[in-house]
Simulated scan of single mutants.
Amino acid sequence: MSDQSVHPVGEGAPLLREMSPGDVLTALRLGLRDFRAKPMMGLFFANVYVIGGWLLYIFFFVTEQIWWALPITVGFPLLGPFLAVGLYEVSRRLEVGETEWERNAILGVIWRQRLRQLPSMAWVVIVYFLFWSFFAHMLFALFLGPSALVNVTTSYAYLLQPEGISMLLVGSAIGAVFAFVLFSLTVVSLPLLLDREVDFVTAMITSVAVVRQNPKVMGIWAVVIAGLTFLAMLPGLLGLYVVLPILGHATWHIYRLATVSERP
């Protein structure tokens, strides 16, 4: 990582550093260290994510709308950055040498964020997720027709037809664009909002600036997040009990590696 920095993009925003690909490995190593230091905190927040995913799939199965599982599987991880806010606070405390606290102290910090900018950022993420779900529904009907939305609950043969394969390919490509845009908006914005008194628009602009300044490193980080999350979701979401805490803690360290903590 270079010591070179650029001017902040807005009032209260940090200086940005030039990053190197090795920073990704450094962040993962530090994320694993934080998870090992406070494993119960990581498992607690991962549990919310995993149980939420199970409940969604059960709901779609009971209501015979299991075809929604595909867009939800792609889109559900988009909520991960917001759900990992508690992990950012754990890493922040460990960073300054705090090692003893009650779980309620972390939850209290999250609760107090309701009076700051995180709720606004949360709405951005939620609306983005809902828009992706609507778009996936529209894409399904466009390629396979409205009748497929009914029949796919009893037969997945639609997905093996040329139209179904085309829909999966196009949907995956568009979904990747959706995911990368949201990644660019949130990769450092949520840790930044937790760490500094800035508005959520400035936080998002700063996050995009980090991606623009370090496209190669951020591209690697995006692939790492997508790949590990996908593998973790395969065994009934159970892998998220390990992957989500590590990625959550590592995201805090990506933020630290991408910014200058103190202004000169």
Rank of each mutant, 00 (worst) to 15 (best):
L83A: 06
A84W: 11
V85N: 02
V85F: 14
V85G: 04
V85P: 00
G86K: 07
G86M: 08
L87Q: 11
Y88G: 00
Y88D: 01
E89W: 10
S91L: 05
R92P: 00
R92E: 00
R93M: 10
L94F: 06
L94R: 13
L94V: 01
L94W: 08
E95D: 05
E95F: 07
V96A: 06
V96Q: 06
G97K: 04
G97V: 06
E98A: 03
T99R: 12
T99W: 03
E100Q: 08
E100G: 02
E100L: 04
E100T: 15
W101A: 01
W101V: 04
W101Y: 15
E102D: 11
E102A: 13
E102P: 03
E102L: 09
E102Q: 09
E102Y: 01
R103W: 04
A105G: 00
I106L: 14
L107F: 15
L107A: 14
G108Y: 07
V109E: 09
W111K: 12
W111E: 10
R112C: 03
R112L: 14
R112N: 15
R112P: 03
Q113H: 05
Q113V: 00
R114V: 14
L115G: 03
L115M: 01
Q117D: 04
P119L: 01
S120E: 14
M121H: 12
A122L: 07
W123D: 04
W123L: 09
V125Q: 09
V125E: 08
V125D: 04
V127R: 08
Y128K: 07
F129G: 02
F131I: 12
W132A: 08
S133I: 12
F134N: 13
F135L: 10
F135R: 05
A136T: 00
A136D: 02
H137S: 03
M138K: 10
F140S: 12
F140N: 13
A141D: 06
L142H: 01
F143A: 11
L144A: 04
G145T: 06
G145V: 05
P146G: 01
P146Q: 08
P146S: 05
P146F: 02
P146I: 08
P146V: 12
S147Q: 14
A148K: 15
L149V: 07
L149G: 09
V150W: 11
N151S: 12
N151E: 15
V152W: 09
V152P: 12
T153P: 05
S155N: 10
S155D: 14
S155Y: 00
Y156G: 15
Y156E: 11
A157D: 13
A157E: 15
A157C: 02
A157M: 10
Y158T: 09
Y158G: 14
Y158Q: 07
L159M: 13
L160T: 08
L160V: 10
Q161A: 14
E163V: 01
G164K: 10
G164L: 06
I165D: 02
M167T: 13
M167H: 09
L168Y: 06
L169V: 15
G171D: 02
G171N: 03
S172T: 15
A173V: 09
I174R: 13
I174Q: 04
A176E: 07
A176M: 10
V177R: 06
F178S: 11
A179V: 01
A179S: 14
F180I: 09
F180D: 08
F180H: 12
L182R: 14
L182G: 01
F183H: 14
